[in-house]
Amino acid sequence: MLEGKFEEASLLKKIVEAMKDCVSSCNFNCTENGISVQAVDNSRVLLISLLIEKDTFEEYRCDRNITLGVGLGSLSKIIGNGANSDYLTISADDDADKLNIIFEDKVKDKISEYNLKLLDIDADLLDVGPMDTDATITLPSADFAKICKDMKVLSESLQIIVTKDSALFQSVGDIGTGNIVIRPKTDIDHPEESVTISLDKPIDLSFGSKYLSDIIKATSLSQKVTIKLTDQSPGVFEYKLPSGYLRFYLAPKFDE
């Protein structure tokens, strides 16, 4: 038996919105510690790793490990029916073929209940393991989203060049070129506006703009995004949850 109650439906809504355009369905792996997902997009370029730790929930129990195969488009439609501020409880019996979803309005005496048919998903997992990191950039997630959108008008690739004191985002396309430079900044009054760059080794990596467009759909989940880059390796883009994370691993583009 799994039962997890979110204080606000908006959190699960944001998580599903951030994932559903990249992967159509995925397995939710539920254990006593929380719920995790690993899913790869069809082109096997972008991997999503989600961890919703037990502490994220107002109430949580999972007596036995269960795997719930979920169609994200369908889940999105159902959870779209609840108000952002509703309590949202998901539950499933062991060996269940459906996920029970209940919204409770905090003001009105109103309870809405839905069942989502579960899917049997046979997905092979990638062993991403712990990765070395050459450069780590933390910046406001809205700023990163704007950089990705602005650079996408120029090219289908975004180049990220990190040196000791700056990160350069560069696009070179048929119509012209664009550069955006950000530098570390500590904002004591607004810590969420701070930018940090830590570097062991300079980085010069390129990523596909269309995949970055998928990643920035997670912007509303966290005020900050942490980008971990390693030479000749996939980039990691992490949005922290109140307890857990939504992480994207994006394979780079190399010169032919």
């Binding site: 790869v40 096997r44 991997l47 062993d127 996939p234 394979a251 583009k253 190399f254 032919e256």
Partner: peptide, 14 residues
């Protein structure tokens, strides 16, 4: 022109 790599080139399948 740049070539898009896939994750399978970096991570083994479990």
């Amino acid at each position: 022109k740049k070539k898009q790599t896939t994750l399978g080139e970096f991570f083994p399948t479990e």
